[in-house]
Write a protein that binds this DNA or RNA. Sequence first.
DNA 1: GTATTATTGCAATATAATTGCATTAGTAAA
DNA 2: TTTACTAATGCAATTATATTGCAATAATAC
Lengths: 124, 124
Amino acid sequence: MKRRSTPAKKAVIELLKSSGTALSQEMIEAQITEKMDRVTIYRVLNSFCEDGITHRILSDEGKYYFALCSGCEEDKHNHEHFHFRCLECQKVECLPQPVIVNLPEGYIQGNTTGWVTGYCNNCN
Amino acid sequence: MKRRSTPAKKAVIELLKSSGTALSQEMIEAQITEKMDRVTIYRVLNSFCEDGITHRILSDEGKYYFALCSGCEEDKHNHEHFHFRCLECQKVECLPQPVIVNLPEGYIQGNTTGWVTGYCNNCN
DNA sequence: GTATTATTGCAATATAATTGCATTAGTAAA
DNA sequence: TTTACTAATGCAATTATATTGCAATAATAC
């Protein structure tokens, strides 16, 4: 499917870039200036994920967060890092630390995810 | 609130013990022999969590799993280990490996969770 | 056996995300 | 520039998972 450039997509990408953090649909809706339906935000974000522009992580509180990819190429993605969520300001960010696990004998490893909650340097 | 011993509680505990894995409400409902409402299962499981008998983890696919606690006491819990989910047989289990993260300067660490998907030794 | 109140079942509600469908609007070609 | 094609959007409805309200039931202490 050939993608088209739209105001909605530009606005969402801009917001993700300027925030430098991972954002939920709810956060994007609250912060974005363009008038845009809730569903559109989800669809824009999901299309970014399909295209490898963002990645989606389900937080420990049950919401999806979306963050710009860095170090991802076509089919080789790199999202296996820890994510931090601040209990005070709600900020979610990708941490550089990769998630490394040792599985028992005979197990095959697929994807990994890791979450840490706590207080960020501002809210500390 | 003083707890009472009921058939529902006994059945759920038995199932958790005999399975040796973490189970979702859905799995419990499917495997349990007693007739028991969906809501009752959730309530029984949540009461176990309050009492420190089980712990609850939100999986990477968005469902809650419940596992018997081991090494938890009154207020000192020990759930900061990785959880494995088999993509084939859906089994979820607690791995011995603890989740260890290093946060940036000035951050305060709260809880951590870690998930690994893949194939278990049986489904491999 | 009786009283107290924790527990249960059923219906309704909450929350987060997705789907269906008609309308709107990018984009490439004429 | 105009036209045709179809991706993208908005709104309503739906899905999926979990929780809440409330009346009825049953575990436990006396």
